[in-house]
């Protein structure tokens, strides 16, 4: 059945007769219109990359970051409503801090994802709130090694070796599947991530964009940091070259 005009799609607390919650599906639509974000879980670490669409040339390049830091060892890339992304990140920081407060050690990513999943779910149950218009990729290196998860607007989450959300996720997933992700080093992963974002962007023929990347792992001493300038430039140059070959 269609959703529009039935009245069953006006609240997160309403099921449609066939058992769907349209408000959550609409929230997912907000993600589909937004720049692609990907994550790779590789040997010794995690790499995050975001296709940051540039809506004005007056924007300061490099500012306005879309990849955020949750704890020393946890990074987060979002696709969807930017402001919702900050809300989710703030909650993530609170959860990570509270885990440290209680256990005096850095939290496993699983715990944070679990709590954020519950948090997102709570916004799908009441008519007094709307769901998060957000797909969240979380990456970390914790006591069990590199981890990568995605949380959807519905609150469900899965662990991944390669993850993609946002507008270009289909193509990005296809590209990720071609890789031997487990065999990549972090540096190789950075180049692959850059290539995929460039490829996805090229495919959609969108307005200007900026590539934003970060990593956590052996290369950074287990801390979530932006990719160093030289490596970023190198990766972008290689990505641009590969697109031209592709054409």
């Amino acid at each position: 059945m269609t959703s529009i005009g039935t009245g069953y799609d006006l609240s997160a607390s309403t099921y449609s007769p066939d058992g769907r919650i349209f408000q959550v599906e609409y929230a997912a639509k907000a993600v589909e219109n937004s720049g692609t974000a990907i994550g790779l879980r590789v040997k010794g670490g995690v790499v995050l990359a975001v296709e940051k669409l540039v809506h004005s040339k007056l924007l300061v390049p490099g500012a306005n970051r879309r990849i955020q830091t949750i704890d020393k060892h946890i990074g987060m890339a979002t696709s969807g409503l930017l402001a919702d992304g900050r809300h989710m990140a703030n909650r993530g920081r609170d959860e990570a801090a509270s885990y440290r407060e209680v256990y005096n050690s850095p939290s496993p990513l699983k715990i944070i994802v679990d709590r954020l999943g519950l948090y997102a779910q709570a916004y799908t149950v009441y008519s007094s709130v709307r769901p998060f218009g957000l797909s969240t990729i979380l990456g970390a290196v914790d006591k069990d090694g590199p981890q990568l998860y995605v949380i959807e607007p519905s609150g469900v989450f899965f662990g991944y070796r390669g993850a993609a959300v946002g507008k270009g996720r289909q193509l990005a997933k296809t590209e990720l599947e071609k890789l031997q992700i487990g065999e990549l080093t972090m540096r190789q992963a950075v180049k692959e991530a850059a290539r995929i974002i460039y490829l996805v962007h090229e495919d959609a023929k969108e307005k200007e964009f900026e590539l934003e990347m970060s990593w956590i792992g052996d290369e950074t001493g287990g801390v979530h940091l932006p990719i160093p300038k030289e490596l970023q430039q190198e990766a972008e140059a290689a990505a641009k070259a590969s697109i031209e070959v592709f054409e």
Partner: peptide, 15 residues
């Protein structure tokens, strides 16, 4: 030490 650790992480996450 714990207070300062929390503070340092808050500061770090701002990036």
């Amino acid at each position: 030490q714990k207070l300062l650790e929390e503070l340092v992480i808050e500061e770090f996450t701002e990036q």
